[in-house]
Every structure is written in structure tokens, then in C-alpha cells.
């Protein structure tokens, strides 16, 4: 009863993957070998059950999630294109984003240290801190702790968390929707951060109490990010984004 035909051949036969000649020969063999014939039937049956069980249904929100991620990637190509992993490759840890986050955080903080050691001015150090806080917020799952498109929820949220009251306005009609706010730390100081959006660009507006007098907005660029700083009413503001400098200045005017 057991047949000397290899299992491979039965399996390839039912897939129609045998070369023409072998295929014909095996078809003939099947007619005379009940063992192979019943095996072929059994394997076909398993295949049918699998096909009938179908694909694992995809979560309905996955396409929109991926479209959004693609749009963001197209808008902000900060990561170099990964080579197409065509064939077997070294297994790279999967949570690449987290790894990249740690790497960038390390890089940014070591750069900051370097500046400090080389005696960079306080201003540059501050800029570096603002930039790394901005980058950090982009790397997190969510850049905000309190979500709102309504300024009346965000402003009271800061009360008691920071020692000043930042200007909070929803500028959605002007094309700068308020996403929300969070607490951050700049130069060892607790600061408020307001998060605005401009199309797909995220803007962090950091705010902290200062003794300094009012100052007009001044724009600088660092590592491809625009930094706009100004002081008004005893509160220092710093807007950081990859958004165009002109548009960032417009946001400062609106605030």
C-alpha cells in the first residue's frame, strides 16, 4: 500500500507545478495508485479548507492609517530611503521607530553636550534644547497630553502646571488648528508646549515665564528646522517646526 512516490511530487502535482512530462507521468501513476490518489485528494481538501477560511480580515482603519503615514513620509523625508529588502537580510530589530527615536535622542543630546563643552552661548544651547524637544515630540506616539481644538480646554489645563498663563488660541480658521498642549522641559525648566498644525507640519510653540522685556520675533534655522522666538507680556515663546519660516512668522503674528 505505501507508495514510493515522494510526497513532494504529490504536493507539486496538485499545484500544477510539475514539468509537463512529469505531470503526465504522475497523472498516469495516480490512476493505478490508490495511496497517492487518496493523498492527493486529502491535500486538495486541506487546501480548500484553508482557502475557504480566507484571509484574516484587515482592521478597517489600517488603510487610512497607512495613507496618513505615507503622506507624512512624503512631506518630511528626514529618514534616508531604506534599501529594498529583496532577499534574506540580517534580522534588524523591528521596533525601528523606537530604536531610531533613541538614536536621535542620543545624537541630539550628545550634540548638545558638545556645544556645552565647546563653550557655546546660552542662546545656542537653548535653541538646541528647543529643537530636541520638538524632535522628541515628533517621535512620540502623540505630541500632546491634552487634546483639543478648543482653546478653552487647553488654557485651563496649564493652570497650576506652569507658573504663567500662555496665550492659547485656536487658529483653525487661519489654517493653524490647535492640536493640544503638553508639558515639556527646556534647559531644566518646566515649560508649556502648544501644538499646532499647518497642513501636515507639526508646530511646537514652547512658552515659559521670563523676566525679560518684550522682544519682536526673530527667526533662525537649525538642522533644517525653523525656530522663531519672541517675548510678550513676561512670557517667552519659541515656535519650532519644519514649516516655512514665513508661515511660522504668520503664526507668531496671529498668537
Amino acid at each position: 500500500m505505501p507508495c514510493d512516490q515522494p510526497f513532494d511530487r504529490v504536493s507539486a502535482y496538485i499545484d500544477g507545478e510539475l514539468p509537463a512530462e512529469e505531470r503526465r507521468a504522475f497523472a498516469l501513476h495516480l490512476e493505478t495508485c490508490p495511496a497517492c490518489a487518496s493523498l492527493a485528494t486529502e491535500l486538495r481538501q486541506i487546501g480548500r479548507s484553508l482557502a475557504a477560511s480566507g484571509r484574516e480580515p484587515m482592521p478597517s482603519e489600517l488603510p487610512s492609517r497607512i495613507r496618513l503615514a505615507l503622506a507624512q513620509a512624503a512631506d518630511r523625508p528626514e529618514e534616508p530611503a531604506a534599501p529594498a529588502p529583496r532577499l534574506r537580510r540580517w534580522p534588524v530589530p523591528v521596533m525601528l521607530r523606537q530604536a531610531a527615536a533613541i538614536l536621535v535622542a542620543c545624537l541630539v543630546s550628545s550634540l548638545a553636550t558638545l556645544w556645552f563643552v565647546t563653550g557655546a552661548s546660552q542662546g545656542r544651547l537653548l535653541e538646541q534644547d528647543l529643537l530636541s524637544a520638538h524632535v522628541r515630540s515628533l517621535l512620540q506616539d502623540s505630541p500632546i497630553q491634552v487634546a483639543s481644538s478648543d482653546a478653552h480646554t487647553v488654557k485651563p489645563w496649564f493652570a497650576g502646571k506652569v507658573d504663567f498663563s500662555p496665550e492659547v488660541r485656536d487658529l483653525a480658521p487661519q489654517g493653524f488648528p490647535l492640536v493640544g498642549g503638553r508639558l515639556d522641559s527646556i534647559g531644566g525648566k518646566r515649560v508649556g508646549a502648544l501644538v499646532y498644525k499647518r497642513r501636515l507640519h507639526l508646530i511646537n510653540v514652547f512658552a515659559w515665564a521670563t523676566q525679560g522685556s518684550d522682544a519682536a520675533p526673530s527667526l533662525s534655522t537649525r538642522s533644517g528646522y525653523n525656530l522663531l522666538t519672541w517675548t510678550r507680556g513676561g512670557v517667552a515663546y519659541a515656535a519650532v517646526s519644519d514649516l516655512d519660516g514665513k508661515e511660522l512668522e504668520r503664526l507668531a503674528e496671529l498668537l
Partner: peptide
């Protein structure tokens, strides 16, 4: 795992998109 699969597919699509010029 459905959630791991979601993450993997998203990661793959981003990688594929970035490498698409070379396709």
C-alpha cells in the same frame, strides 16, 4: 497577532514607499 501585523504592515509600506524609486 493582529496588532503586531498592523504595525509590521505599516512599517513595510513606509519602507517600500521610501525604496520605491529603486523598484
Amino acid at each position: 497577532s493582529r496588532s503586531d501585523a498592523e504595525d509590521a504592515v505599516q512599517e513595510a509600506y513606509l519602507r517600500a514607499f521610501r525604496a520605491f524609486d529603486g523598484f
